[in-house]
Design a protein around this nucleic acid. Structure first.
Lengths: 211, 211
DNA sequence: TGTTTTTTGTTGCAAATGCAACATGTTTTT
DNA sequence: AAAAACATGTTGCATTTGCAACAAAAAACA
């Protein structure tokens, strides 16, 4: 079910041909650099080949929201956002990004590249995965209280690892932006959760206590 | 860019052949009936052919969340949700739904149906559209206050119509569940917005005032 | 290494929100 | 047409949250 790479099932030699046919561009970004900003408005899809990045947005109050965490094989682009919403994508580690024009993916290749349809299938899987991720995020944000948002997200992180413990994949400051809540209020709630025996923390290592 | 239907670009006679090849099932649902519930766990994708539906979830406090509003050509299914999140899809009007096993869409057709790839392209577009919708929803839910959530959603509705006025596509009770906030608190905030001259309302008809 | 920047941890206070409980109005059902 | 079910509108009050401001710890940098 999982697709390991957008090129899965395609021979290396064909990959190179395809990249040319698609006019794909591979670019490198250093940590903290902007990958795309709201200024660019091309129908281009980006695929993270290595490294990590965040999709972020600032509202008019200056509040930052981390819309999405991107990692290897994550897909992003203006095509997926409504016009008018100004988001940017910032590298959180050095990354390699492949850009392909959306039209090349959507339209059948006139030259009849034999592997085009394999790639389309792979993109389909990556998009499905993205939908799963967005739904996960929605489930968290639709919780009404900070406590429930925290527990919901922690539960998700814990489910990824065998024990009920895990490392926070970002700083507490970023976590607040990811949950769309005030940081100090979130810290207060984390303290409450500790005092009430729901969690234990040691820096970014968190353990869920099952009563 | 917009795909009008999952069958766009495919001849009527081919559509019928394809439906057979895919083992697609068309089903009818009366208003308020459950289309899928958490009990079913098949890797099946549903496509709304006509009518409307909501994806909803109840949390352990009994709070209902409207996760997503589905209309013609909307795509939904368990494949798009993380396991363990128990969502259901409820028809909000009589609807026709087409079910296709995810595998049939993802995998190349061995029989070489000539139009299989056209359908894959169409599904790709529908999924892209779904991602746009989910991002829209995320943008709203990531707002920190009820006021900002309301304005953000109203702005979206207004952008769809030429004037800065529109009809709420659901009841105020449902709106609260869509924004994931308490209904009475939301009503209070709507009153405030009216008193402060940001909006005018007449039942479900709302006008944004541009100062 | 020492300096600067960022992150974590905390608190008081004002504002926003959820909750409970109603009254009233509207729609659906029998 | 009456009854039942649902939606809208409102309020007081307790709780939660955001905001501002600060100290201490940790990390990044020069």
């Amino acid at each position: 079910m999982e697709v390991k790479s957008i090129f899965e099932g395609i021979e290396n030699t064909d990959v190179l041909k395809m990249l040319k046919c698609f006019e794909a561009r591979k670019m490198l970004f250093k940590k903290d650099r902007t990958i795309i900003s709201n200024i660019i408005n091309v129908k281009t899809v980006g695929i993270i080949l290595s490294g990590t990045a965040n999709i972020i947005r600032y509202d008019y109050n200056g509040n930052r929201s981390i819309i999405e965490k991107l990692e290897k094989n994550s897909v992003f682009g203006e095509v997926f956002s409504r016009v008018g919403s100004d988001i940017s994508v910032i590298a959180t580690s050095d990354c390699e990004v492949l850009f392909i024009d959306y039209e090349h993916i959507i339209k059948r290749c006139k030259k009849g590249c034999s592997y085009h349809s394999t790639l389309t299938d792979n993109v389909l899987k990556l998009l499905s995965q993205k939908i799963v991720d967005l739904n996960e995020r929605l489930e968290i944000l639709s919780k009404r209280t900070i406590r429930d948002k925290l527990l919901s997200y922690f539960e998700f992180l814990a489910s990824e690892s065998p024990r009920r413990s895990f490392y926070l994949p970002f700083t507490y400051t970023d976590l607040a932006d990811y949950l769309s809540v005030d940081r100090s209020a979130m810290m207060r709630e984390i303290k409450n959760l500790k005092e009430e025996g729901f969690i234990k923390t040691n820096g970014k290592h968190i353990t869920l206590i099952s009563y």
